[in-house]
Amino acid sequence: VELNAPIRIEKDAANHCTGLIVKPQIPGAVKGGRPSPKNSTKDEVLLPADRVLVAIGQGIESGKFGEFGLPVQQGRISAFDTSDIAGNEGIFAGGDCVTGPATVIRAIAAGKVAAANIDEFLGFNHEITTDVVLPPIRFDDHKPLGRVNMVERPAEERKHDFKLMECPMTEEEALQESSRCLHCDHFGYGILKGGRDSKW
């Protein structure tokens, strides 16, 4: 894996993506125990692509919520599973700002819970039936298998470069892990006040 820094996205006359311009880099001075990247003398390079996905780190700006009076612990808003917040009637929270980074399924479930309980708080009490019949959960349809742990490159080797720390799974390992069913349709429904499980 070569070390490159993104510079700009190239587009054609129709404004369609044609590639990503990157600047080759090399490891520079060590800061904080790790080498910092610096631009090399090589020319910029075009990586042909018809789509560019931007992956960025994310954090929760919880300071303002704390100043407003909401309970914040370790950078996350303290809320009940029902999405309401103790001592703050009419304010609801859910998703990553409560749990920290988690799965999309959990975020969707939290959104459903918040929507239902906000609806109830406002006095509407709408009922949305769940007409889809979920198949019963089975735990005997797959042979129990141990989880595949990612293999890491030795620290002595990876401290000299910016290549990936973890080695990818083999095709066999990836197929085995992807065959697991997490039963999101059953367990991802969330928690609703009153224990409602057929309508909300």
Rank of each mutant, 00 (worst) to 15 (best):
E166Q: 14
A13Q: 13
A55V: 14
S178N: 11
L122S: 00
V98D: 02
G66I: 02
G69P: 03
A102L: 05
M165W: 10
V45E: 10
K159S: 11
Q58F: 13
G195F: 06
P136K: 14
E44R: 09
L164V: 03
R138P: 00
P37I: 06
L175N: 10
V104N: 04
R8V: 04
A55P: 06
G59P: 02
I77K: 00
P37N: 04
D50P: 01
A116Q: 04
K42F: 10
P101T: 00
K38N: 05
H160F: 13
I91Y: 00
M169H: 09
P136D: 15
A29M: 10
G75S: 09
K193L: 04
P24M: 04
A13Y: 07
I105Y: 01
A13G: 10
K64S: 10
G123C: 02
G94F: 09
V54E: 13
L182A: 15
N125L: 00
L53W: 08
V148A: 07
L122F: 04
K38R: 14
F124A: 07
L70F: 02
M150S: 11
T130S: 12
I191N: 08
A116C: 10
G28S: 08
P24W: 05
T41I: 12
D185Y: 11
L70T: 02
N39I: 06
I21M: 15
L3D: 07
D50L: 07
I9F: 01
N88Q: 06
F68T: 03
N39G: 10
N88H: 04
A5G: 08
D43S: 15
T103D: 07
C181Y: 13
